[in-house]
Amino acid sequence: MSENATLIETSAGATHMDRLLFGDNQFFGVNHMSEEKARAQAMRFQNLDAVLAVLDTAYDEGITTFMCTTHERIAEVAERVRSNPARYPDFRFYPCMPYAHKYADAVTEYGMLGAIRRFLPDEGMMNAMLRGGSSIAKKDAEGLITLLVDAEMAAFRGLSTPVIWLQNVVVDLLLGLGFTEAFVIFAQHIKKRYNAEPGFITMNLPLLLDALEKAGIENPLVCSNINKIGFRMSGGIEGYAEALAGRTCRAVAMSVFASGAIPAREAIEWISEQPNIQSIVFGASSQANIRSTKQLVDEFSGTRPKRER
């Protein structure tokens, strides 16, 4: 852990979160600005060693938390970290589940129930089948949700996963449907079974905070696009400003640079002035970008309002 990393004591008491987290979009050909750039990244990171080299760079710069999807390839990263405890004593994963594409593809191909059946966990298959089967029969969301979470978490066994996130595709689907009970089921399972803190990624922060409050989830950990130009902030930048200032929550800001539309210094300076921003998650592929982002965040960290409790 670098000397400069800022540690925040959260209301939950147990969870320390670094100010700067490393994301994984760049590794999987996700780029919200350009298809060409996305493809170039997919080519570059086809080889796992290229991914690990960038993760090593970030780790050595003091960015030791990797906020990642539960993409199949992340299992290989997890395995590498697991087998080198001396190299990565402080490495933490913040898994974001589910990796939606594999489910969406399966739903297209097998239909809704067929898809669910395909994603039962490997371990304890009989048990899982019984649990999943009876959940399906009883229309019991709790059994099904916890089962899918366990399947996604299998790759991280034995690793540090202090925060576990529900991806925006699922959060926002449930939010739109009004299926808020699922948030509670997820949160309770994450706390109970993994002794970790549940987090919710969303593209609709103001609406989600309303729903989480109604569901009784207090001071939630949320992650959303938060950037100076209001890019992909549903409810508008004013709605976000109100929500961040007026609500009890801890926010992780993503897309702070709006895919490169905002100059780095301007972007970090702005986000540092917003209240209730716990951390910033960013993706980068070069040592220069990783280092300069870290330096900017360290530089502006001293100036941010102390609204966190």
Partner: peptide, 20 residues
């Protein structure tokens, strides 16, 4: 010109602004 400048926010985002 990129989507960041060509896209307006929607009341609710699920899969892409265009669907909303």
């Amino acid at each position: 010109r990129y989507t960041t400048e060509l896209t307006e926010n929607v009341w609710f985002y699920l899969r892409g602004e265009e669907y909303s």
